[in-house]
C-alpha cells in the first residue's frame, strides 16, 4: 500500500478546501441558514407538528442530507475532473499508485469535507431550533455512509464528464430533484398513496428517513431498510468504480 501517495492526494485535496473556504464551507452554511429562515421560521410557523416534532426541527436531517449529497458529489467530481481537464492526471497515471489507493484518497478527502460541512450545518441548525439526537452512533453511521457513497458517485461523474457542463448535469437534473422529492422537507406519509409509492423508488427517501430516525426515533421507512438501501447504493458505486479502473474507461486510452 502506497500510504505516502494516499496522504499526498488527501492533503492536496483538503488544501483546496481551505483555499476555497468561502465556496466550500461558508456558502453552504449561508444557504442552509436561509432554508431555516424561510422554511423553519416564516413558513414552518404555520405548519403543525409532524409526528410530534416541530417543523423547524423536522427539516434539520433533510437539510443536512441535502448538503451532504450535493457537496459529496460536487467535491469528488471536481477533484478528479479538474486533473483531467488541466492535464495533470498524467502524474497520477504514471505514479506507483493502485486504483484502490486513488479512490481511497480522492473519495476520502471528498467525504471528509462533506462530513465536516454536515457537522457545521448541524451546529448552525442548533442555533435556530432545539435539536436532539436519540441515536448518535446511527446518526454518525448514516452521515459517514452517505458521504462516502455519494463521494463515490461524484467520483464516477467526474470520470464520466467531458466538460464542466456535464459535470453539473447529473447533480442539477437528477440529484437535486431527487433530494427535494426525497422527503427532506416533508414526511412521505403526507403524500397521496400513488406518489408515496413512487417516492419509494427514490433512494434519497431511505437516506433522509434513516437519518431522521437517528435524530427523532421516527421514520417514513424502517431503519433497517434505509441502511440496506444505502449499502446497496454504496455497493453499486463501488462496482462501477472497480469497472472504470479495470477498463480504464475515460481515463486511459
Amino acid at each position: 500500500m502506497n500510504f505516502y501517495a494516499i496522504r499526498a492526494i488527501y492533503l492536496f485535496e483538503m488544501a483546496r478546501t481551505w483555499r476555497t473556504l468561502l465556496q466550500s464551507i461558508v456558502s453552504p452554511v449561508i444557504s442552509t441558514s436561509l432554508y431555516f429562515v424561510v422554511f423553519g421560521a416564516a413558513i414552518g410557523s404555520r405548519i403543525s407538528e409532524i409526528n410530534g416534532i416541530s417543523y423547524g426541527a423536522f427539516i434539520v436531517p433533510g437539510l443536512v442530507m441535502l448538503s451532504l449529497l450535493t457537496q459529496s458529489i460536487s467535491n469528488a467530481s471536481f477533484g478528479i475532473y479538474f486533473p483531467k481537464f488541466v492535464g495533470t492526471i498524467y502524474e497520477l497515471l504514471s505514479a506507483p499508485v493502485s486504483y484502490l489507493e486513488i479512490v481511497i484518497a480522492y473519495v476520502g478527502a471528498a467525504a471528509s469535507k462533506s462530513i465536516i460541512l454536515g457537522v457545521i450545518i448541524l451546529a448552525t441548525a442548533a442555533l435556530f431550533v432545539p435539536l436532539q439526537v436519540q441515536h448518535p452512533v446511527w446518526m454518525l453511521l448514516f452521515l459517514v455512509l452517505t458521504a462516502v457513497t455519494f463521494s463515490l458517485f461524484g467520483f464516477i461523474i467526474g470520470i464520466w464528464a467531458r466538460s464542466f457542463e456535464q459535470l453539473q448535469l447529473v447533480p442539477l437534473l437528477i440529484v437535486t430533484p431527487l433530494t427535494f422529492l426525497g422527503g427532506s422537507f416533508y414526511s412521505i406519509d403526507m403524500l397521496p398513496p400513488f406518489w408515496r409509492t413512487v417516492s419509494l423508488f427514490n433512494p434519497v427517501v431511505y437516506l433522509v428517513s434513516g437519518f431522521r430516525w437517528s435524530f427523532f426515533g421516527v421514520s417514513d421507512v424502517n431503519v433497517g431498510i434505509s441502511l440496506g438501501m444505502t449499502l446497496v447504493f454504496l455497493a453499486a458505486c463501488l462496482a462501477a468504480v472497480w469497472w472504470i479502473f479495470r477498463t480504464g474507461w475515460r481515463i486511459k486510452v
Binding site: N2, Y4, V97
Partner: peptide, 27 residues
Amino acid sequence: LVPQELTTDAFETVWATVSFSRGLFGK
C-alpha cells in the same frame, strides 16, 4: 516524466506541488 504540455496545478505553490509529487511516488 516531464510531459510535453505545461500541465501544472496553477494555484499551488512551487514547494507544495513538488512535495506532492514526491509523496505521490511513495517517498
